[in-house]
Computed example of a mutant assay.
Amino acid sequence: MSISEQIEEKKNQLRKLKEELSIKRYGENPLILKTTSSDVQSFNSSPLKIRRCLRGHLGKIYGMHWSQDSTRIVSASQDSRLIVWNANSTNKLLAIALSSNWVMATGFAPSGKMVASGGLDNVCSIFDITDTEDENLSAFRELNGHTGYISCTRFLDDQQILTSSGDMSCILWDINSGSKITEFLDHNGDVMFLTLKPGDSNIFISGSCDGTAKLWDVRTSECEYTFEGHESDVNTVSFFPNGNCFGTGSDDATCKFFDIRVGAEVNNYEKDEILCAVTSVDFSLSGRFLFASYDDYRFYMWDVLKGEEVIAMNKHSNRISSLGVSPDGYALCTASWDKEIKIWA
């Protein structure tokens, strides 16, 4: 038997052992939501409508994030710009010139006073946006320490920020001093995204190209739990509104729903017709729906309980790179490589 055949045999043995352990722990069907919600009526919904369209970027948009008060959106594009938008009027409030056009991530501080960006320059740049009249705004803090691209930035508050990176790590930073507080190093592949627990920013989930999502506590540097199940890169993660569960999206064309309390996958979202990667996920404010964008220019709204497709929308002309539900729950925003941002309701 060749070495490759031996490796494949060991992989099959490992897969069978995992299945046996899962059955012992969760029963024959661990996807308990589909089982327990069989009597729940399917949700019939009219399609979402585009209420606003934000135009102004000249390059592919790679990231977007809502402000906590749901009135503003920050977007990052390969035109070397961060733009802060008024989500209601569609006006540009601020355009920030970046030193690198390979920007991949952005984020709003909960206070709304700062935004961050990061990308292939391996640097997280922090901008104070309280003065929107400054046309030559520069970063007041640049956080250097990652040895790979910055894939996601999320503020805990005005003093601390988390970053994830292609160097397989996440880092918690002190913004005032520009120094590292804690490094999180348990992943074996590029870390693609992170999400903070609602109401408790000490807890976060990261998704990685090693096919796993991991639960962390910023007060320690150890991984609290590893969630497996995807067959390829985990590109995106999002906490359920109550903080007890989270959703993931992967290159394997599926979304999954994990319950932290039992440490298991309790539902999944897939169709035979979907063959492309999931790029971004987020939940409705009620938690009943999961929104997921895909490489085929469309996004789906899934029934979280039943695992069924509710609607599929295709109004962008290129890849949807990022989506997010506004904190007040009234709107969904999608950002695309077609240089447009659309707000849905």
Rank of each mutant, 00 (worst) to 15 (best):
I73G: 00
I171D: 00
V191F: 03
R51A: 14
K315I: 14
P110Y: 00
W216T: 05
P110T: 01
C255E: 02
F239V: 10
T163F: 09
I96A: 09
F184P: 09
D167M: 01
T153G: 01
I23A: 12
L21H: 14
R72V: 07
I150A: 03
L21V: 15
S321E: 05
L323D: 13
T132F: 09
D134H: 10
F283I: 07
L143N: 03
A87E: 08
D128M: 02
L137P: 00
K24E: 10
N91H: 13
S208T: 01
M313E: 14
N44D: 13
L31W: 06
G56S: 11
L215D: 03
N144G: 06
K60Y: 09
S326Y: 02
I83S: 08
K34Q: 09
Y26C: 08
G324L: 06
F246C: 04
N242S: 11
Y300W: 12
S326D: 07
S317W: 13
M104I: 15
D131C: 01
W85F: 00
N122S: 10
S238Y: 00
F291Y: 11
M104K: 15
V123G: 09
L172T: 06
Q160D: 07
N144S: 08
G148H: 12
G247L: 04
W337C: 13
L196H: 04
A312L: 05
R81M: 15
N235W: 07
I181E: 13
K339P: 03
Y294H: 04
A292R: 05
L285S: 15
T236A: 03
D200K: 13
D39T: 14
R52T: 10
F246K: 13
A331N: 12
D69S: 04
A95P: 05
T279F: 10
